[in-house]
Amino acid sequence: MTATTIERRLPKFGGFTLGMIALELRRLVRNKRTVIFSIVMPPAFFLIFGTSGDYRTERIGDGNATAYVLISMAVYGAMLATTSGGAMVSIERAAGWSRQLRLTPLKPAAYVAIKLTLAMIIGLVSVVVVNVVGAFFGADLPVGEWIACAVLAWVCALVFAAFGLFMGYLLPSENVMQILGPALGILSFAGGLFVPLDTLGHTFATIAKFTPVYGVGELARYPVTQSGHLWQAVLNVVVWTLVFAFGAMWRFRRDTARV
């Protein structure tokens, strides 16, 4: 073997590396829109809508109304964060970066896994930030339930990581979050995240149960409210996860097909 011979081998895990996650995370944080959507807006909304005097004294389940709003905002933040994480693929496709990556050993499945990981990391940051702000501004909840709610808000946001990915492959736009941000706002109203469903009237409340935000919100609040709709909520989350995941897979396969 000559000295000039280079040993060439394929990377492990199809190119899924901590090094790439670290670099991508750095880039994600550099994007001001992402930071505002996922880290600034949710705590700001919490402070505006959840911290009035009445809310601090009003009890809902084991906590006060402020805590109830806090959980909703944690869900909202995690949702925005994971959606924008997933939707990164749209910018990358528009820039021709996805094509550039095909000139590396990175496997498409590893790329998607990295995007999902990033979405969940930024989702986690969002949930933690909202909850820390909540702890300083009057949210009152037993610690065990508090943690359970935060973890549920985060884990269930996987639905929206899949949603973001699906939309990212579907919409070849540089500003996909300008569409998805308001869309998530509407879905949040529709799913009873901002306003309790029983204030919306019977018909609307029934429709609401089929929208994707409903299940996540209901599940994340379950430790506090012990709501009777647990199985509906679980079913909602599972079905929407499958819908978005299959949608993302469908577009992803089309995108990476070598014609």
């Binding site: 190119g15 090094g19 750095r26 880039r27 820039a95 021709g96 094509r99 550039q100 990556l101």
Partner: peptide, 26 residues
């Protein structure tokens, strides 16, 4: 390959872009 256009992300620095490539190729 050096392709004609595209294939770069605006919000990476020059060094980060090359570093990412290095990470991918091990």
């Amino acid at each position: 390959a050096v392709m004609q256009t595209g294939g770069l992300l605006k919000d990476y620095t020059v060094e980060e872009t090359v570093r990412l490539t290095a990470v991918l190729f091990g």
